[in-house]
Structures are given as C-alpha cells and as structure tokens.
Computed example of a mutant assay.
Amino acid sequence: MTTRTFLVHGLLAGLLAGVVAFVVAYTVGEPQVDRAIALEEAASAPASSTDGHSHEHSHDTSGASAGHSHGDEAEVSRSTQSTWGLATGTLAIGVVLGGFSGLVAALGLGRLGRLRPAGSTALVVLLGAVAFSLVPFLKYPATPPAVGSGETIDSRTALYFGFVAVSVLAIVAAVEVARIAARRSSGVPGVLAGAAAYVVVVAVAALAFPKVDELGAFPASVLWDFRVSSLLTLLTMWAVIGAALTALVDRTWRRHDAREAQRAFAAAL
C-alpha cells in the first residue's frame, strides 16, 4: 500500500463524512442558528423602531430605495447559507480532514506497535478527533452568531487555532512518549504514559490560555442546544471518516495479502 492509496481513501472517506455531517448540521444545527438570529434581531428591534420614528420624513423620501438597495447588496442570503453554503463548508472540511487523516495514517503505519493497518488507521483518526476537535472544543466551544463582539473575532480566532496547535503538538509528543515507554515495558504502561503526557500538557495550556466570556444575557438553553448540535456535527464527521477510512484500508490490505499469497503459491510450484 502506498501513501497515494491512503490519500485517495482519505479523500473518499472525507467526502462521505461531509455529506453525512451536512445532514446532521442542517437537521440539528441550523434550527439553533435560526433561534440565535431571531434573538439577535429581537434585541435590535427597539433601537431600529426608535430610529425609524425620529427620522420618519427621511425614511419616507429615501428609506424605501435605500432598504431595497441594501437587500440587493447582501452577499449571501440566509437560505443560501443554510443549504448550499453549509453543504459546501461541510464537504470542504470533510475532504480536508479525510485527506489529512489518510496521509497521517500512512505515516503511522508500522509505527504504532503491532497494530495492523486497519487498527493503526482507526487509532490515528481517533487521536486526530481528540486533538484537533474535541479538546479544543472543550476549551473554546462554538458560539452562535448572536454571541460575541465583532471587534474581538480576530483575537478569539487566534486563541482557538493557537490552542488547536498546542493540542496537536501535544498528541504527537504523547505518541512518541508512548512508543518510548512501550519499548521499555509492555504496551499498557506505554499507552498510559502517553495519555498522561497529553493530559498534562493540555491542562497546563488550558490554564495558560485566557478565557473568552462574551455571552452577556444570551439564553443558556439556546446556547446549550447550539453547542450540543455543533459537537454532534463534529463527532459525526470524525466517526464517518474513521469508519470509512478504516474499512477502505482494511479491504485494500486484505486484497494485497491475497495477491501476495497467490504469488508465493505460484512461486512455490
């Protein structure tokens, strides 16, 4: 099996994961986004109403044309965002994550103890899901559109991806610690040593990175439902990537073994 084979399998698995994640996000996540947008619009309605009364004459003469122009200038409508935009995003993320998982699975082949290719691939995807998505989500969970100041979006994004980088580097270091420990003793202590190393590094990073609290008076129930749906979408994508990529790798490896066995039998005749 070549690196190209793993990459192609990863891209296919990611494409399938993107489709499934879109269904989950559209079914479970988009209603929560709509609720958040409705709350944001309701909160801004009184200010708009007051402004409208104070400039009634101005709105009568030019407001209609200005409002129409603003609507025409809107780059993407909400309906497009929740359908084609969402589908494009989930498919793109799925393909990228799947392709990258395939490459890392190829790199990890034969370097993760005595695991066969299918087991090695499944472990790589699991570690990727934990380091790249799950743990960063616990530190900086997703927030709906109505939450957070537009002035701090750059700093919040930088904090999130900075923590992702720390988490990914920590998981790489933890795997190396586990390999070294496994050479000196059995496999279980090695796994525990690697897991402990990752937990320590991530815990220290979580304490060192600043908190982000811009919720204000946003309803806790809506925020909880939004975050649960976001996490469900993430886990669905990783689960499909793991299952599909592992199945494809296992099928290809079995075919490779069968061909090698046939060649060995033919050579022995």
Rank of each mutant, 00 (worst) to 15 (best):
L7M: 08
H9K: 01
G10T: 02
L16F: 06
A21C: 02
V24I: 15
A25F: 11
T27N: 05
E30Q: 14
E30G: 00
V33H: 05
D34V: 07
A43K: 15
A45N: 04
S48T: 08
S48V: 14
H55E: 10
H55N: 15
H57Q: 13
S58T: 09
T61V: 07
S62M: 10
A64T: 13
S65D: 12
S77G: 14
S77I: 02
S79D: 12
S82V: 02
T83N: 11
T90Q: 02
T90E: 12
V96A: 14
L97I: 09
G99R: 09
F100S: 13
G102N: 07
G108T: 08
L109F: 03
G110L: 14
P117A: 00
A118F: 04
V130A: 12
L134Y: 02
V135C: 00
F137R: 07
L138G: 09
V147Q: 07
V147S: 06
G148T: 08
G148R: 05
I153Y: 07
D154F: 04
D154E: 12
T157Y: 03
F163L: 01
I171G: 05
I171M: 13
V175R: 04
A181H: 07
A182F: 10
S186K: 08
G187C: 12
G187A: 15
G194Y: 10
V202S: 11
A206G: 15
L207A: 15
P210T: 04
K211W: 01
K211M: 02
K211I: 02
G216W: 04
P219R: 06
R227H: 10
S229M: 00
T236N: 09
W238C: 00
A239D: 08
A239F: 06
L245A: 03
A247C: 07
A247H: 01
L248E: 02
V249W: 07
V249E: 10
D250S: 14
T252S: 15
R254Q: 13
R255L: 13
Q262M: 05
R263N: 11
A268R: 03
